[in-house]
């Protein structure tokens, strides 16, 4: 392709946006509305998952050992678990002294001075954090079968709730995203068909004059891509401001929840939302125009 033809094609694509103002606006509005909903929804879902994940990371299993079990034995169990159980994220060894210190600090404060020796002599334990909470029951069963273990404390309810909630969010989000995409594809194919109907004569003349398929298609595809870009940029900008305002508002109004609701900063959300939205917008614009022009090429 000649350089001048390239710029002509590009220029025609841009001019086409203005020539079919209503079609352009309708398409941008359609893509924009879908991606706006997508953006809002995506932000909520990622934050939810973030909250769930943070909560999950705090869930631990505490393992206590029989009387007289030495520190070496406990550490051997620790390294064995680290080596053979892939679901384990981190194991912390809490010695009897450390357990007493922690207990003193938390519950006794200055009254602890009356104790001369450690009343929690046999409470050396392992705090096990998991990668995936749903693996907890299997791990607990395994640890209970180790002979030096006295007791395993776990927070079963939390673990089950969290992994259930996580699954629910995943299903619901997949469902809503699929519905949104279907709706947007339906609306966009309609608007593109409308736009092509307006331009059928032009395509026809081009074919009679001897335009190649590529040359007929190129301005429409440029136009489609531009519509996709604008249609994804607008909701991205709106969602950006809505999001930043929403998290500061919620954080200031519901201060007591702030420890529970740990919002993601907008940059983290946009690291994925930005490329995904642009790709969806441009992809729909490209495919919509490419496929629809194709139908009219055989003149």
């Amino acid at each position: 392709m000649r350089i001048s033809s390239f710029f002509y094609t590009l220029g025609q694509g841009i001019k086409n946006l203005g020539r079919n103002k209503w079609y352009t606006l309708a398409s941008i509005a359609t893509i924009g509305a879908c991606l706006f909903l997508f953006g809002i929804f995506y932000s909520i879902v990622t934050n939810f998952q973030h909250v769930v994940k943070t909560a999950e990371e705090g869930v631990s299993v505490t393992v206590f050992f029989n009387e007289g079990v030495t520190e070496e034995q406990i550490l051997a169990v620790k390294s064995e678990l680290e080596k053979n159980r892939p679901e384990v994220r981190e194991i912390e060894y809490v010695s009897a002294d450390a357990a007493w210190e922690g207990f003193k600090e938390e519950y006794l404060g200055e009254y602890a001075d009356g104790f001369t020796e450690n009343p929690l002599a046999d409470s050396a334990n392992l705090q096990i954090y998991l990668k995936d909470v749903s693996m907890q029951p299997a791990l607990v069963t395994y640890i209970e079968s180790i002979d030096v273990v006295r007791e395993v404390n776990r927070s079963e309810v939390t673990a089950n709730t969290l992994s259930g909630l996580n699954k629910l969010i995943a299903y619901v989000s997949a469902g809503i995203i699929i519905i949104l995409l279907l709706v947007s594809i339906f609306l966009i194919s309609n608007t593109v068909t409308m736009g092509i109907a307006v331009r059928k004569d032009e395509i026809n003349i081009m074919k009679y004059i001897g335009a190649t398929d590529f040359f007929v298609r190129a301005p429409f595809v440029v136009e489609g891509i531009l519509i996709g870009m604008i249609g994804s940029a607008i909701p991205l900008i709106i969602v950006y401001f809505v999001y930043t305002h929403a998290i500061t508002y919620v954080a200031s109004k519901f201060t007591m929840l702030s420890s529970l609701l740990n919002f993601l900063p907008v940059e983290v959300v946009y690291k994925e939302l930005l490329p995904i939205s642009l790709a969806i917008g441009i992809g729909i614009g490209f495919l919509g125009s490419f496929a629809t022009v194709r139908k009219h090429l055989h003149v």
């Binding site: 392709m1 001048s4 033809s5 020539r19 004569d201 081009m206 001897g210």
Partner: peptide, 24 residues
């Protein structure tokens, strides 16, 4: 006639040349 009504006379004629990729 089948002219492009949203373009002027010059553009309509130049259109045919653009399509066959004549240099500007």
């Amino acid at each position: 006639f089948r002219l492009l009504k949203d373009r002027n006379v010059y553009e309509n004629v130049a259109f045919a040349q653009r399509i066959v990729q004549t240099p500007t």
